[in-house]
């Protein structure tokens, strides 16, 4: 089946006065794809979202969002985009229902959708509760409910699980995967490597405004598996690190024959160690 491109950027660059924040950004996101933009704070992730959503204009390069130039997204175009920004942008004094009711009127969709999405994000019991009485995780789920209520074709999620407890983060991951299943293209920024590996079809590692690596997370990790070792933990508590080649086959085989193996791991790096390998910087 032919995949449709939802977002295509071509050599995007951005600077604020003399400070270059993005350079030579090339990404392509198809329908039903989760794309993760990873990088430490200040790498330029939010700036790229602002460019793609028309809030900022790049100094050079082009970007197509739903086939439209990012600098001239139409009203109809915006109606096909959903967003969860770094700050949830909810009306604190209004109830969950009223927050969503405002957007059903803006989008011109049925109020029936409110109940559907509140159930979906697990806030059906908080319908009449004011937003200022919700926990951070509940607010984030409400923001996600608002973003998906009009069934957008693209979803921009800026650090959607930042500061949330693991259970809520996992719940949000599940919702993101459901949206992907419907064909929504998802642009996710995060500095949580585990989250990116779990969710993303493709990731770009962003450092000082430049993409330093791009691709399927596991492929990237394999590419940087320079150590190529196997770690064995035996039942007697001993730990062995062996080279991942035929010279270790007999030894490993013997451990298995003697039922001595407690656990076995390959030494592939995770995305965080890949990032450190490439840039010499840690994620902050």
């Amino acid at each position: 089946m032919e995949q449709k491109n939802r977002i295509v950027t071509d050599h995007i660059a951005m600077s604020f006065q003399d400070n270059v924040v993005l350079q030579d950004i090339n990404v392509k996101i198809e329908e039903g794809e989760i794309f993760g933009l990873l990088g430490p704070s200040g790498a330029g992730k939010t700036t790229l979202i602002k460019i793609l959503t028309g809030q900022l204009k790049q100094i050079s390069g082009t970007a197509q969002v739903l086939g439209m130039d990012n600098r001239s997204i139409t009203r109809e175009g915006y109606a096909k985009i959903g967003m969860v920004l770094d700050n949830t942008g909810l009306y604190d004094r209004l109830t969950c229902w009223d927050n969503l009711a405002l957007f059903t009127e803006i989008y011109g969709i049925s109020k029936d959708r409110i109940k559907v999405v509140l159930n979906k994000v697990g806030l059906e019991d908080a319908t009449k509760r004011s937003v200022h009485k919700l926990s951070k995780g509940m607010k984030q789920r409400l923001a996600l409910a608002r973003a998906i209520m009009h069934e957008p074709e693209i979803l921009f999620l800026d650090e959607p699980t930042s500061g949330l407890d693991p259970a809520t983060a996992s719940y949000i991951h599940q919702l993101i995967l459901e949206e992907k299943g419907k064909g929504t293209a998802i642009f996710l920024t995060t500095h949580n490597m585990e989250e990116a590996t779990k969710l993303c079809d493709n990731v770009a590692l962003l450092n000082k405004g430049q993409i330093v690596e791009y691709g399927y997370p596991k492929n990237i990790c394999r590419k940087y598996n320079f150590q190529n070792k196997i770690q064995l933990l035996l039942k007697n508590g001993e730990s062995h690190t062996l080279t991942n080649d035929s010279s270790s086959a007999e030894l490993i085989g013997n451990y298995f024959k003697n039922n001595a193996v407690e656990s076995i791991h390959s030494s592939e790096p995770n995305l965080e160690t890949v990032f450190m390998e490439i840039t010499g910087r840690r994620f902050e």
């Binding site: 915006y78 957007f103 803006i106």
Partner: peptide, 11 residues
Amino acid sequence: KNTLRVLMMSN
């Protein structure tokens, strides 16, 4: 509180 930006981004 960023609500205005959300409105502007919601058409």
